[in-house]
Amino acid sequence: MKLTRRDLLITFVKGAALSALPMSAYKILSPSEVHAALKESNIRWGFIVDTDKCVGCGFCVKACKLENEVPYDVEVSRTWVERYIIMKDGRTMIDTPHAGRDGFTTQSVRGADVNPKNIAKAFFVPKLCNQCENPPCVQVCPVGATYQTPEGVVLVDRSWCIGCGYCIMSCPYGARFFHPVHKVAEKCTFCYHRLVKGMKTACVDACPFGARQVGNLKDQNDPVTKQVLTQRVAVLKDSFGTKPQVYYIGLDENVR
């Protein structure tokens, strides 16, 4: 067989064209098309953390770990409570032993005793995923395993995540980690499985002081929405442009 270069190249082009044919079966959707297909939801889940009410008991962390089957004794957690101690000399001490799971029962921070006389102010700050309106974790996932539901909650598909850790790196809040059992990215879901059944999140139900509240931000009569609209609230690290949807009442400038 005498095959000229011309024939060879033509064969290559034909081959490429033929192999491209099955590709036409796929349709690439624009984000707006997807949005239209999914229909806009009349729910946008949001969260309020009233730091004035938090006493650092850690019930929320306990409840979360049990509800969402995050191994109890590992360091990582979907939600955690931070303790801030600001000294009279301006120093700030922060800790969250076991993610605050067992509460804050000693006056020492990482083994060093703190003299109460020198404390200017101290408070607790519960943290969880901010379910950002513009979530960087969803943006960077190379396979689309993490996504935003129409109600604004960011979820992870455990059967699809490849475990590259890019989403963990991209979260400014440290909300993500690898699940020790499933070996995929793990995060707070606002207890999506409970919300869709009309229940509250496990942490909200566990909080004895009402420091945590979850609600529909699209409903102006929702108590959470009312507070967001009428009170002085703040969000964490807004300079990242992530548009967090967890609002804090009484947020101090020392909070990281």
Binding site: K65, P71, Y72, V74, F178, P180, V181, K183
Partner: peptide
């Protein structure tokens, strides 16, 4: 229920 998972390691903790 999580008692059996005590020795589980977090990725990165090592």
């Amino acid at each position: 229920m999580t008692a059996g998972l005590h020795e589980l390691a977090v990725h990165g903790a090592e």
